[in-house]
Amino acid sequence: MDTRQPGEHTLTIRKPYFDLIADGAKTIEIRVGYPKIHRIAAGDLLRISCGDSTLTTRVTQVAAYESFPAMLDAEDTAAIGGPEATRDELAAAIRGIYPPEKEALGVFALHLALVQADA
C-alpha cells in the first residue's frame, strides 16, 4: 500500500511555454534529471511560475527517457510545444536549453493537468 502524500513543487518556465500551459495546449513539460525533478511523482502539485504569474498543475504521469530523441519518439510533440511545433523545432529548442551534459542526467516528461491560474 502506497502511503505517500502528494508533494508540492515549483518550476520556473519561459513565457511562451507558460502561455501554452495556461491555454491548455501544452500538457507535457520536459526537464532533465536534476535532483529536484527526481522528487516529482504522479499526483504531486506543480506550481509553474513565469515572472509574476503562476499556474498550478497536477502531475498525472512522469516518464523517464535516456535521451531527447527517445523522448520525442515516444511523446506527443503537440503536447510539448503546442499544436504548431514540429519534432525538429522541439529538438532544437530543447537543445538550446539543455546541453549534452545535462541530457546525460536523464530526460523526464512531466505530464500535467491544469488545476488553476493563480494570477
Rank of each mutant, 00 (worst) to 15 (best):
E66Q: 10
A104G: 04
E66T: 14
R47F: 14
G82A: 09
R58P: 01
A74K: 05
T3D: 12
E66R: 11
T60Y: 04
G43N: 04
E89C: 07
A41K: 15
A79E: 02
V107P: 06
S49A: 15
G51E: 04
D44H: 00
D19M: 12
G51R: 05
V62R: 08
A70W: 06
I80N: 03
M71W: 08
I21L: 00
A92K: 08
P99A: 02
E84D: 15
E29C: 04
P99Q: 01
F18I: 03
L112I: 04
T86G: 03
D23P: 07
R47G: 11
E103L: 07
G33W: 01
Y34M: 10
P16D: 10
R31N: 07
R31A: 07
A63T: 15
D2Y: 04
E103F: 05
E84R: 15
T3S: 12
D44T: 00
V62P: 02
P6R: 00
L105Y: 14
D52H: 12
L45E: 11
T56F: 08
T56I: 15
P69N: 04
Q5A: 10
D23M: 10
A117T: 15
H9I: 03
I30P: 06
P35S: 07
F68A: 01
R95G: 12
M1I: 14
V62C: 03
T3C: 10
A64W: 10
I37A: 01
G24D: 00
T60W: 00
T27V: 09
I80A: 05
E75S: 09
A22K: 05
I21P: 01
E8H: 05
T77G: 11
R14Y: 11
E29S: 05
I40M: 05
P69C: 04
G7V: 00
G81A: 04
A64Y: 12
L72E: 04
L11G: 03
V115Q: 09
I97K: 13
F18V: 02
T3H: 11
R87L: 00
L55Q: 03
I80L: 07
G43K: 05
D2P: 14
A22R: 06
S67N: 02
A92L: 06
I97H: 14
T12F: 11
A22W: 03
R47H: 15
E66I: 09
G82K: 10
E101P: 02
S49E: 15
R39A: 15
V107N: 09
T12N: 14
L72I: 02
L110C: 02
L114C: 00
A85F: 13
R39N: 14
G51V: 02
G96H: 08
P16T: 11
E101K: 07
G7P: 00
I80V: 10
I94W: 12
T12V: 15
D2H: 07
T77M: 13
E66Y: 06
I13P: 05
D23E: 14
A113D: 10
A41F: 12
R39H: 13
A92V: 03
A41M: 14
K102L: 12
D23Q: 14
H38E: 10
G51Q: 01
R87Q: 04
Q61C: 12
Q5F: 05
D2A: 08
H38K: 13
I94F: 15
T54A: 08
C50G: 11
R87G: 01
Y34C: 04
G24V: 02
V107Y: 09
F68C: 00
R95P: 07
Q5K: 10
K26T: 08
G24F: 01
A85W: 12
A91W: 06
D118H: 11
V59A: 00
A117L: 10
F68H: 01
K102Q: 13
